[in-house]
């Protein structure tokens, strides 16, 4: 699959995102890394131009509450309803329910094994093939635990 890994907000480093990117590559995916400090609008445009199947959002400095839902909204407005979204970084458990409500299908904290993320992507693919809701614009009930 084509996966965009994006870092919205003002994070200064991206070691984690790069580790994830490499793991995804080793699992056979094509990974487009946007680099640091992209605005929500830029990220949505990249997803459209690259025709990405999956978008991984990474935030270490608290941007998630504001920027992640905004990105989800912009994606829906742009008609990109079938893109699968997952998130990673420093995201406190209290904040996670709201993000799942935005159809962010998985949230991975620090220390998550890369194999877990790969398993999530496999499960997400299976849902998609079976025509079950998995995209950002579809029913938000299902998420990875």
């Amino acid at each position: 699959m084509r996966v965009v890994i994006a870092k919205p907000g003002l994070d200064g480093h991206d070691r984690g995102a790069k580790v994830i990117a490499r793991a995804l590559r080793d699992a056979g995916h094509e990974v487009i890394y946007t680099g640091l400090r992209r605005t929500p609008e830029e990220i949505v445009r990249i997803v459209a131009d690259e025709d990405a199947d999956v978008l991984g959002l990474s935030s270490l400095s608290g941007a998630h509450n504001h920027l992640f839902p905004k990105i989800c909204k912009l994606l829906r407005e742009a008609g990109l309803n079938d893109v699968i979204i997952f998130a990673g970084g420093i995201i406190p458990s209290d904040d996670r329910e709201a993000l799942h409500g935005e159809a962010i299908r998985a949230i991975f904290g620090p220390g998550t094994s890369t194999s877990e993320i790969i398993s999530f992507l496999d499960a997400a693919t299976a849902r998609k093939v079976a025509d079950q809701s998995i995209g950002v614009g579809e029913n938000a009930e299902w998420y990875w635990v």
Partner: peptide, 11 residues
Amino acid sequence: ISGGAILADRM
């Protein structure tokens, strides 16, 4: 080996 790729030019 894996068939995957990191496409990092645009960043």
